[in-house]
Design a protein around this nucleic acid. Structure first.
Length: 671
DNA sequence: GTCCGATGCTTTTTT
DNA sequence: AGCATCGGAC
């Protein structure tokens, strides 16, 4: 066996096959290597693949691990092993046993918009609607209850103040409404399996028997329910291998419980602990900076990263006048690196604390004609037309999804206004049917003007044809196109968006969406059903949602530090190192400075070769110029590692390449 | 019912 | 500055 490539600590962790073990793996210490080798070791020791459950934090990590195992172990059938995220695993449990909890097996997954929509409806119905603040309060309250495995009763019993009982009522109504629409939210994907296993010991035993060896990656970011899932599954065998780095716990605000990793031994007495500290990613200067920063945190397992490599370049620090200058200086630097150091764009990442920072960079990169891709928020899947197209599909798969129906019923305009919708809801309620079915109700149709009724009929009929079509064997993307066309959405795009240029963009985006269904089919051939397509979409994270087109060309990557977790680049540029931005002002207020520092630590340790930090002395906010102070984290870096030689001109002279490229564009445009 | 301009709010991080 | 929502005019 090829254990020769492993260092002693890695080898120990790989070879300890039974019992509980915690692998404390610092950034870049070959965590994934350990997990894959460990799985290989399990298989080679004769344990069948079906007994192995490997949980990763992202889908991307899961598919990379699968791919690695297949090349590493061609002789084993690794298909029967589970490799995926907690949410995907929970989903598979519910697809099998959801009916025991009163869910139909064809349930759909509520995305963030759906969750917000349902909660808003509930609050309006209960006349608690006014004010965003209240909305946030209830949203946090529900999430908090779920994280602590509390139901409505639990909330009610947890305090005397009247808001406990109000929150309990809202919680109850929210859950009931979701369920009535046959929807399951992200928390349910974890909470319901736990409920099921606690309720029915036989099902739990079946799962325990099936999954005898558990491996959990990024254990520092598990929450209480995820830890509970693992505790229940591990049973008395306790064959659990938790891998993680407490210094990289950056999802505390989402319920991640650092204590899961800090106090692992309490839950699994006698667990063996292995520390991986030899780093294979970064230069020693980068590691020294990271080590120095993280020692300012108090609650952690002490680790010191080291590498056999060179110390490398110093860390560059830019301190410039404004955020626009910051973006331009960085774009210049990116171009320099590309052409002078011959490092491809896709080995360069620009990281920031908050999404809004991406805008200036987009502009400067465009001006410099540097290709880039953005991971996250404002990206492709957030577009209105994509959400509309998706809503059309969501109702088709799940008729009970009234919210999606309401989203698209009048998009494009079919003359169905507020009053008509009220009537529709009323009829749906009295006949106890889904809104989509109520559309065919004669009483409802009679209540609308004949022109409207005609268009409603056309809609219902097209919908019905869609339902029937999806039973037939035709390619998924072809069915999607046929349905969106038949129901009038594709042609409707031209009436929804008046401006010619905008139209073209929107149509193109929807085409790309349809194409993504085709790509999904290519990847999952026989299992590419509408349900699986929607499910995989709902369970995607921002890194999965990067456009296919963007993944192929050589691009600079723009993303938040959160999104960069688990990734590495030759060159990493961290922008906006200013007090109140990084660390974020809210996190300081909420007393989460240590988590911000871990986030900074994550940012630093993404870099292999060169790290560049920058800050602006002023920054526009709400259209006002604000003076900004350097981030306290800058002062935590050892001075001798920093090269803060001021740039000769903050705006560097244009490169020859850049000038000629502008002439090229002009020639193209005017010839 | 639809369109369009005024208003006011935004910026934490996301499976 | 940009976006989302609301209210008034057609």
């Amino acid at each position: 066996m090829d254990l020769d490539h492993l260092n002693p600590a890695q080898r120990d962790a790989v070879q300890q096959l039974d019992g509980a073990l915690l692998v404390l793996a610092g950034a870049g210490t070959g965590k994934t290597t350990v997990i894959t080798h460990r799985i290989a070791a399990l298989l080679r020791s004769g344990i069948p693949a079906r007994h192995i459950l490997a949980v990763t934090f992202t889908n991307k990590a899961a598919s990379e691990m699968k791919a690695r195992l297949i090349t590493m172990l061609p002789e084993f059938n690794t298909k029967r092993m589970f490799v995926g995220t907690f949410h995907a695993f929970g989903c598979s449990v519910l697809r099998r046993f959801g009916d025991r909890l009163g869910y139909s097996k064809a349930f759909a997954i509520a995305d963030t918009d759906d969750q917000n929509g349902v909660l808003k409806q509930v609050l309006t119905d209960m006349k608690l609607g006014e004010g965003e603040l209240k909305f946030e309060f209830f949203k946090n309250g529900i999430r908090h209850a779920n994280n602590n495995m509390q139901n409505a009763e639990g909330i009610r019993n947890s305090g005397r103040m009247s808001w406990f009982s109000t929150l309990a009522d809202v919680y109850d109504a929210y859950q009931r409404r979701l369920k009535s629409m046959n929807l399951v939210d992200f928390d349910d994907l974890l909470g319901l399996p736990v409920k099921l296993w606690t309720m029915d010991q036989r099902i739990l035993e079946e799962y325990r028997d099936r999954y005898r060896y558990l491996l959990i990656d990024e254990y520092q970011d598990t929450n209480r329910i995820q830890a509970e899932m693992i505790r229940l599954l591990s049973g008395t065998r306790k064959n659990i291998c938790a891998v993680g780095d407490d210094d990289q716990c950056i999802y505390g605000w989402r319920g991640a419980e650092v204590n899961n990793i800090l106090e692992f031994e309490k839950g699994y007495p006698g667990a063996r602990i292995f520390k991986l500290e030899q780093n294979y990613r970064s230069t020693n200067n980068i590691l020294a900076a990271a080590n120095a920063v993280i020692t300012n945190n108090s609650r952690r397992h002490t680790k010191t990263l080291w590498s056999e490599g060179t110390s490398g370049d110093q860390i560059k620090l830019f301190e410039v006048a404004t955020e626009t200058v910051e973006a331009n200086v960085i774009a210049d630097l990116v171009q320099d690196i590309r052409y002078e150091k011959d490092i491809p764009y896709n080995e360069i990442a620009i990281l920031f604390r908050s999404n809004f920072q991406s805008r200036v960079f987009e502009q400067s990169l465009r001006e410099h004609r540097i290709p880039y891709r953005i991971v996250g928020a404002k990206a492709f899947y957030e577009r209105r037309e994509i959400k509309d197209a998706l809503a059309y599909l969501k109702v088709l798969h799940n008729k009970a999804d009234n919210m999606s129906l309401l989203r698209i019923l009048n998009v494009p305009s079919r003359g169905i206004g507020e009053k008509t919708v009220e009537k529709l809801k009323e009829i749906a309620e009295t006949t106890d049917s889904a809104l989509v079915d109520a559309l065919e109700n004669e009483e409802f149709l009679a209540s609308t003007r004949s022109a409207v009724a005609k268009r409603v009929r056309e809609f219902s009929e097209a919908f019905q044809r869609g339902v029937e079509n999806f039973d037939e064997s035709m390619s998924l993307s072809a069915k999607v196109r046929l349905y969106l066309d038949d129901i009038g959405y594709l042609a409707g795009l031209k009436t929804i968006y008046k401006i010619r240029e905008e139209q073209a963009v929107r149509v193109e985006n929807v085409e790309e969406f349809i194409n993504s269904a085709a790509l999904f089919e290519e990847r999952f051939a026989e299992t590419a059903s509408l349900q699986n397509f929607l499910e995989s979409y709902a369970l995607m994270d921002d890194n999965d949602r990067v456009r296919e087109a963007d993944a192929e060309i050589e691009n600079v990557t723009l993303m938040t530090v959160h999104a960069a977790k688990g990734l590495e680049y030759e060159i990493v540029i961290v922008a906006g190192l200013e007090e109140d931005l990084f660390p974020h002002e809210l996190s300081v207020k909420e007393d989460n400075l240590e988590e911000e520092r871990r986030l900074f630590y994550v940012a630093l340790t993404r870099a292999k070769q060169q790290l560049v930090l920058s800050r602006a002395r002023t920054r526009m906010r709400y259209n006002r110029k604000e003076i900004r102070c350097p981030s306290q984290f800058i002062a935590e870096l050892p001075q001798e590692l920093i090269d803060s030689t001021q740039l000769r001109n903050e705006i560097a002279p244009a490169k020859q390449e850049y000038v000629s490229s502008i002439f090229d564009t002009m020639r193209e445009r005017y010839s």
